[in-house]
Nucleic acid binder design. Structure first.
Length: 878
DNA sequence: CCATTCACG
DNA sequence: ACGTACGTGAATGGT
């Protein structure tokens, strides 16, 4: 008969591993659950692999152990646990209890000792033992019948290392019990076990290979090489002995253990089911027999790999009004397509034989001519499938973003759960972080199934999302702004912008010359070489070694941010050099070197524009970010010269003049500010003249600068503290400016207060076009959080309305360029600026279109003024 | 993986 | 009294 098996788990260690190795989760009550979830996932996985008859989990208690009495500093082992993890410990125990899994703890002993003891006892009873822990200390327990399993997470994949005696020897060249001696010599910082100085893993292993253990090594201490180790062991033998005692796991702890209780029973109890529901462990719920199985839907999944079948499927699709689609693709190649023809018929067509990627793309394009395609990521779909117009698509991700722009991701399973009330398998859980190609190669069946789920949800979620948009009054913003924008952005990404790589390289080299000089100068003045890029090291040099004034400012130490250094500049010439060094290294790493890495084979940079990232409705840009190319400093601004139009083209650049302030004027309805805009060519000067009761011509530069700062402050959600910081004035003076501003433009204050009030009542604020921004911070009992919420309430409608306006302009410009048969292309948007690569012969017509569509994108009580320039590079076009 | 810093609107 | 201006993304260092 096969011997029985027991699984022993190191509770804290596995919980820790799950906490740090996996993204944290919170359920809708805000409870942190990620570590518990990770623990359970590992538990179920091991149970399936090992099929043990017995199971127990060991936990440390808070009480001090014999190790504490032995060694004063032995306390770091339970070092500061983050609150998010700490609160999951009792939760974990509760879950284990609900699953009727025994928890073993014993005052005065660590979990290690209990695992060692139970492991040895079980082995003596003739059992096979598996110990699961994240802690390599446990390796000392390995025998031919005691298996130590250590899970490791790399890139979201959990791989488990297995150690019987033999594997320990292979990995460490040492027998399991020698692991204790290894720790005694080299120490273990994570367990606060001191090692002997100057001996690391390499030396320790060498010593043990020669002398077996610490005691014997000491007996032959004079023979030990290298010299350093010899002396160290001679001088610190007592330390090594103590460390050995600390590292030794007890296998004879007086712990009582009832094997009958540990017998693996029905884990899936009613109580466990209720807990999993409360914790929202959707994937785990499916392990319970009582849970309705998703197979109900899966029986409608059909996998197809032949041409005949594919033809039929696409014909069926064409007969529908709308189908759900999910593609799998990578680097321009379509690998497979899932199509939900209806909720009862979901197909996955894979590339194989006569069914090529091109075929699928072509068929989908034909479908899109008559059938609307609902998909999660429409812009990605457009990279592979030519869809003529936005009316033929429904973007679930974009819809979900409008309904709640605060989420960090819009995964199909989350949207499915939220709008269908059903649980779907998450991609991350099924295949991890792999790309489509790898995932399909490694887990084809799971991926096909996943594709079908995604296509199904894309289709099924359309009606509830549309209903929610209607209720929220965001139907039009979805139909008329966001969905067309998907196509506009796709075109911009596809087009890209030409960048002169060689010029960029030369620019970088010039920077490097000066950076080298500055490095020398800075380290010379500091009197030692150090890493200037390290705020920690820099802080130590400036504020400790050189004793420059400046207190702590950040959580971690001294602040060395530019505004701090600016104030320090007069005190010592090194500060100037550091500031210059910072500026130049930034330009070199982020822009010169950074951008060069993105130049494609076509000589162009194709950034990605994100439509579902910002809380306010703005677009963002990544890989690379083309919305933060330097302009404020001349040296940085020069980078723009490497952005050039293609042969035969010229850049046409237009930006809105103070669009946010104009939006404020309009939305507040303040006649005085509106009037100011109707008259003014210099709004900041006019504001200064009105706020400070000074004739327009006599406004001083200082007054103008202050007025400009107040204008900015208003848009950001004014506070006297913020303004005082910005202008380096007292709070009182700042408060005075603000008050003068509000009495000059009386309706502004009422408008801003109204926004805050509305935000508090409704839980969200809206733009002119109905875009919403929820503000949960307004409900906070924390003053700082709540104040933040109030500023958001004042800023978001303004920033968001400006974002709406330029989006409208972009769509109109894009569609007019196409309609009028022009070859010129919109290629960049930078929040209030549009850049068009214009064919020279089209310049006049395109200029007119750009100007007209930007100005008329919205009709406000103040004009939308646009500045427009041309140039043979981006530098000149501004 | 988080904090810091800095580039833009 | 509390202690920040609003919205982003990339590079770097260090735990």
């Amino acid at each position: 008969m096969m011997s029985e098996k027991i699984l022993l788990i190191d509770g804290h260690s596995i919980l820790n591993r799950a906490f740090y190795g996996l993204p944290d989760l919170t359920n809708s009550e805000g409870k942190h659950t990620g570590a518990v979830y990770g623990f359970l996932n590992i538990l179920f996985r091991i149970l399936e692999e090992e099929k043990p008859q017995y199971l127990a989990v060991a936990f440390d208690l808070h009480a001090p152990t014999f190790r504490h009495q032995m060694y004063e500093a032995y306390k770091g082992t339970r070092k500061a646990m983050p609150e998010e993890l700490r609160e999951q410990v009792p939760l974990m125990k509760e879950v284990l209890e609900a699953m009727e899994i025994p928890i073993v703890s014993l005052e005065g002993y660590e979990a290690d000792d209990l695992l060692g003891t139970l492991g040895r006892r079980s082995e003596q009873r003739g059992m096979e033992v598996t110990i699961l822990s994240g802690d390599r200390d446990l390796l000392q327990l390995a025998t031919d019948h005691v298996l130590i399993r250590i899970p490791k997470t790399t890139k979201g994949q959990t791989v488990i290392e297995n150690y019987h005696t033999q594997e320990v020897i292979e990995k460490y060249q040492l027998r399991p019990e020698q692991i204790i001696d290894l720790k005694a010599l080299m120490g273990d910082s994570s367990d606060n076990i001191p090692g002997i100085p100057g001996v690391g893993e390499k030396t320790a292993t060498k010593i043990l290979l020669a002398y077996e253990n610490v005691e014997n090594a000491y007996a032959h201490v004079e023979e030990i090489k290298p010299n350093k180790a010899k002396e160290s062991l001679r001088d610190h033998y007592d330390l090594a002995q103590m460390s050995k005692a600390l590292a030794t796991i007890h296998t004879d702890s007086p712990v009582s253990f009832d094997y009958d209780q540990a017998k693996l029973g029905e884990l899936y109890t009613q109580r466990a089911y209720e807990m999993f529901q409360r914790l929202e462990f959707k994937n785990l719920l499916q392990r319970f027999a009582c849970e309705p199985q998703e197979n109900a839907l899966e029986k409608n999944f059909f996998f197809c790999e032949d041409l005949q079948g594919a033809e039929t499927i696409f014909e069926k699709a064409k007969a529908q009004e709308v189908v759900g689609v999910q593609i799998f693709a990578e680097e321009g190649d379509l690998l497979g397509v899932a199509i939900a023809v209806s909720r009862e018929e979901i197909y996955y067509v894979e590339v194989s034989g006569f069914v090529s990627g091109e075929y699928l793309a072509d068929k989908l394009a034909q479908v899109a001519k008559q059938t609307q395609i609902a998909a999660f990521h429409v812009k990605v779909l457009l990279k592979y499938v030519n869809v003529e117009t936005w009316t033929q698509t429904f973007g679930a991700e974009v819809a979900a973003y409008l309904l709640n722009p605060l989420k960090t991701a819009y995964d199909y399973e989350d949207i499915g759960k939220e709008y269908l009330g059903q649980i779907f398998p998450g991609r991350q859980e099924v295949v991890g972080k792999k790309g489509d190609k790898d995932a399909l190669a490694e887990k084809p069946e799971e991926m096909k199934r996943l594709g079908c789920f995604m296509a199904y949800v894309a289709l099924a979620v359309k009606a509830p999302l549309e209903e929610a948009l209607r209720e929220a009054g965001m139907e039009r913003i979805f139909q008329e702004i966001e969905m067309p924008l998907v196509f506009t952005l796709n075109s911009m990404e596809k087009e890209g912008i030409q960048v002169e790589g060689e010029a960029l390289r030369v620019y970088g080299e010039q920077l490097q010359v000066r950076i080298g000089e500055l490095e020398k100068q800075i380290c010379g003045q500091a009197g030692e070489d150090f890493n200037i890029n390290s705020p920690k090291q820099l802080g130590a040099i400036l504020f400790e070694k050189m004793k420059l004034p400046g207190g702590k400012k950040t959580k971690t130490g001294y602040s060395t941010a530019a505004d701090v250094l600016d104030k320090l500049a007069p005190k010592h010439p090194i500060v100037r050099d550091i500031l210059e060094y910072r500026q130049l290294t930034k330009l070199k790493s982020t822009y010169a070197d950074g951008l060069a890495g993105y130049i494609g084979e076509d000589g162009r940079i194709h950034s990605t524009f994100h439509q579902t990232i910002t809380a306010t409705g703005r677009i963002s840009s990544t890989e690379p970010n083309l919305q933060n190319i330097p302009i404020r400093m001349e040296l940085g601004r020069l980078i723009r010269k490497v952005f050039v139009p293609r042969e035969g083209c010229i850049f046409l650049d237009a930006d809105y003049s103070q669009i946010e302030l104009r939006v404020l004027a309009h939305m507040s309805g303040d006649e005085k500010l509106i009037q100011a805009y109707r008259e003014a060519q210099d709004i900041h000067r006019l504001t200064a003249s009105q706020v400070f009761h000074t004739p327009f011509e006599e406004v001083t530069d200082l007054q103008r600068r202050n007025a400009k700062a107040v204008n900015f402050g208003i848009v950001y959600g004014i506070s006297s503290f913020g303004l005082s910081q910005d202008l380096s004035i007292t709070r009182k003076e700042a408060a005075d400016y603000i008050e003068r501003y509000f009495s000059t433009y009386p309706k502004i204050k009422g408008f801003l207060d109204g926004l805050v009030k509305k935000g508090k009542e409704d839980g969200y604020v809206t733009t002119m076009f109905g875009r919403r921004r929820p503000i949960p911070e307004l409900k906070s009992s924390n003053f700082m959080q709540r104040s933040f919420g109030e500023r958001i309430a004042m800023n978001s409608p303004i920033q968001g309305t400006a974002a709406d306006i330029i989006k409208i302009a972009m769509n109109r410009v894009y569609s007019r360029l196409r309609q009028e048969g022009l070859r010129s292309k919109l290629i960049l948007q930078v929040h209030d600026e549009l850049l068009i690569e214009t064919w020279e012969e089209e310049l006049e017509q395109v200029s007119e279109i750009l100007l007209e569509e930007m100005r008329q994108a919205a009709s406000l009580d103040v004009a939308l003024e646009v500045d427009m320039h041309t140039g043979k590079n981006w530098y000149e076009a501004k």
